[in-house]
């Protein structure tokens, strides 16, 4: 009896290994979590994308639950999610854009033309719908670095007190929204 049980051990190890490797097939290595989860929004002072005079700070965002959506017109996936985000805005979700400028790199002598960018953004949002209350321009990607952003699109859910509750890398669609964001948002609004 005892010997039989011992003989089963390699088989059990094999089954465990199979389960482990099988799960690996469905894991998404791109799904990264920021080290900032559960912490306060990092402090920043950044200009508004559309206005020269307006500066935003982390304290300006307090008081309401919001999504911080990292995006850029250069990023096709971001463009693809704009219309769904616009639907969410119509349902009453507050979405703030963090404009992640990729092309600009002063080390390579790039010239940055804010007016050209504004025209581009306006043209795009006119086509897809505008999900944003406003956009923060992170030209040097400093806030993006402080948030642990690795690219675009990425989205953070932040509560009234400025605490970061969720971090999603990749686009937001109905499936992701229902599975990940909606339950958390329900908790917050109840």
């Amino acid at each position: 009896m005892n010997r039989k049980l011992l003989g089963l051990i390699p088989f059990l190890i094999f089954i465990l290994l199979c389960v482990f490797l099988y799960q690996g097939l469905f894991g998404n290595p791109r799904e990264l979590q920021t080290g900032r989860l559960g912490q306060q929004m990092p402090s920043f002072t950044l200009p508004d994308l559309m206005s020269d005079s307006k500066q935003w700070q982390e304290s300006d965002l307090l008081g309401e639950v919001y999504l911080l959506n990292v995006w850029g017109t250069w990023c096709p996936t971001c463009v693809a999610e704009l219309s769904y985000l616009t639907e969410l805005r119509e349902q009453g979700v507050r979405i703030i854009g963090l404009y992640y400028e990729q092309g600009y790199d002063p080390d390579f002598g790039d010239q940055f033309d804010i007016n050209k960018l504004r025209a581009e953004v306006n043209a795009m949002l006119a086509r897809t719908g505008n999900p944003y209350q406003f956009n923060i321009l992170d030209l040097k990607r400093t806030l993006a670095l402080d948030l642990g952003v690795s690219g675009a699109p990425e989205t953070f859910l932040v509560d009234k007190q400025g605490k970061i509750l969720l971090h999603h890398t990749g686009d937001i669609n109905q499936r992701v929204w229902r599975a990940k964001f909606a339950p958390k948002l329900m908790e917050l609004t109840q």
Partner: peptide
């Protein structure tokens, strides 16, 4: 974080440069 399996010295991604 973007070009996984590369270190930041090796990668040309924007985030690696940052």
């Amino acid at each position: 974080p973007k070009c996984q399996n590369q270190n930041i010295a090796d990668s040309d991604a924007v985030v690696a440069k940052d």
